[in-house]
Design a protein around this nucleic acid. Structure first.
Lengths: 217, 217
DNA sequence: GGGGGAATGTGAACGGTGTCAAGATAATCT
DNA sequence: AGATTATCTTGACACCGTTCACATTCCCCC
């Protein structure tokens, strides 16, 4: 971070030639631009500019523009995993875990819409889930754990996998579609976007099967 | 269409100055490039080239590159609506309709992945579902009709809307995620991607609630 | 501690892109 | 026929991703 400011504020000879931690700075700059100016403004040159560095500098840290974006996305996946973990921890009873996970997932996506889209786009480009989403402590692993805590048969691996995928797909769908303007009146009728999200998730069945008893319509 | 061939095959003086039906030709060219060369190759200039026309010509028919892409996407939404309609018509019993709609939705998206992504991207940019997805005979309307045919209370408008959204979200999620490599073994275990799609949809509950009785696990 | 890679930065350049203004050409209306 | 309008071209501009040759600095080894 020192470099960017110095580049602007210090006389030319005083600013350091080397940045110190450029890759991190580039990732942060990329994320800032993505959030504040949208994906269309997210050019490699703009990122370099923001970091106070020449347009060619990033190529010493990332092989590609796509490589940088993948790094930004990776940060996102990690945060998503943490958000899910926190939500699951806060669920009072284990059988509400999945519902809370779904809500946390959608909440994260809605709070960082551009980042979430980037995350998903790069995942699609590789036709692959990023590693951050697959590990034990990641979102994926936590959904699985939550399903087990809800009483699913640990022996039926097939059923377990299908349920995990279904839950993940549903959350993704809700995350990407709940922002549409058409649902504005519905949001107001239910008392806000959060309520709409919960209502949709409940209707999806997978999230409601066990939670319904406590939270009747 | 005449123009593109003429531009290449006829002596320069013989080719017509005006195209005839350029907007249509541009949309088709855009779609062809999108399908065969991927979204990265889908530049306005490439589309113009493919249509045998100068890079500035499209601006007489579309205000923007985005405007052209929106037109391509629009065609996609229309086809999706038709595919859904056909699937619903073929469902033997009304209570299976929703399940068939979901399957047809995912099938269309998987058959035209780049187009589907474009469709959804432009929809997201406008934070809005395209008109083609909202009309009576569109996918949206048909999901609603199908839910009614499944015995949902026509008086409970709120419930109806929530169920429609839930079904749509779920289909979207499955459509975008079922292609991931991680699910390859699962596909093989179930006998192909179609089987996996049906299995996921069933697990989502919304599609299975009425169909389950006939198609037990 | 000095010297020499290796790492990291710069600048200029190339081809490609979206977009626009000015002019050429064709279709259409009066 | 003449004027108006719609359509297409040419040429230009700014920006983009990427690469190459070169400059600067870090750091390890003698």
């Amino acid at each position: 971070m020192a470099h960017a400011e110095l580049a602007r504020e210090l006389p030319h000879e005083a600013r350091p030639y080397h940045h110190g931690d450029l890759s991190r700075a580039l990732i942060q700059a990329g994320r800032r631009i993505l959030e504040k100016e949208g994906p269309a403004a997210l050019s490699l040159r703009a990122v370099a500019r923001e970091a106070g560095v020449s347009p060619a500098a990033p190529y010493h840290h990332f092989k590609d523009k796509g490589d940088l974006l993948a790094a930004v996305a990776s940060e996102g996946w990690q945060e998503l995993g943490e958000a899910i973990g926190k939500a699951r921890g806060q669920a009072a009873e284990a059988r509400h875990g999945l519902s809370e996970i779904g809500f946390a997932y959608v909440t994260f996506a809605r709070a960082n819409p551009n980042l979430y889209r980037l995350m998903y786009d790069t995942a699609c480009d590789m036709a692959d889930m990023p590693d951050q989403a697959k590990g034990e402590s990641s979102g994926w692993g936590q959904v699985r754990a939550s399903l087990l805590a809800m009483g699913m048969d640990p022996g039926d691996e097939l059923e377990l996998k299908l349920a995990t995928i279904a839950a993940w797909c549903a959350a993704h769908g809700v995350a990407e579609m709940v922002g549409f303007k058409e649902f504005e009146p519905l949001k107001q009728a239910l008392g806000g976007e959060d309520a709409l999200v919960r209502a949709i998730l409940d209707h999806l069945g997978i999230y409601a099967r066990h939670a319904r008893r406590e939270r009747p319509a």
